[in-house]
Design a protein around this nucleic acid. Structure first.
Lengths: 101, 101
DNA sequence: TCATGTCATAACGGCATCGTGATACTACAG
DNA sequence: CTGTAGTATCACGATGCCGTTATGACATGA
């Protein structure tokens, strides 16, 4: 319901997905995510905070750096599943278009 | 990326999820969805249109009624997967809270 | 202590989307 | 043809979120 919709909302912004993608191969500190995504530092911090509140990533300060890490890698399975559905519906829409020509 | 985020956005509104849930047990016409969800007719029409553009539901006029139907029932698997992740992260956050007491 | 690099936050403007109320459109019954 | 039920759309106000700029807070090294 409400909470579930909020959870989906976490993945409903391109830049947030990009931040998440940057963390796919392991923990990174904020600056590394900034470099990897090309987003502004302030924006990356905001998105990381949101991802943390949602429980998707975990925060670990180390000296003057702060590392973020994906808590449960099965979020990537969720993303993959959504990608699959998206492509399937794209294909169906294309077929519908083709059938109407 | 962009398109994937938009796809997630489809599921990021409580009322849209409610409309989808109303269609879980089979096709319904608009009024039936309105009755089942308690939402206004205009709102239900809007959400159904969005769901159709996203390729999640299919529209089938029948006389003066218009039936909507979930195209690929595996969207419910996506939703279930998200629910699972949501509950897991809730549990972890609770454990972190408990550990800090 | 001071300078620097790293990260977080506040304030702001801009834009998208939500929900409502009113209205148009369509099919069908009378 | 007229009325009515079902559905779609428009215009609107309100709210929320995004991204930026600027600044604050913190740890480290000189």
């Amino acid at each position: 319901m409400e909470a579930l919709a909020d959870y989906f909302k976490v993945f409903s912004e391109p830049n947030r997905l990009a931040v998440l993608e940057a963390l796919r191969d392991g923990p990174l500190n904020v600056t590394a995510v900034v470099d990897k995504t090309g987003l502004s530092q302030a924006l990356v911090s905001k998105h990381l905070k949101l991802l943390m509140i949602a429980g998707v990533v975990h925060r670990r300060p180390e000296g003057s750096l702060v590392f973020y890490e994906v808590v449960d890698r099965s979020v990537f399975r969720l993303i993959a599943q959504a990608e699959k559905l998206l492509m399937a519906s794209r294909r169906l829409q294309f077929e519908a278009l083709a059938a109407s020509l």
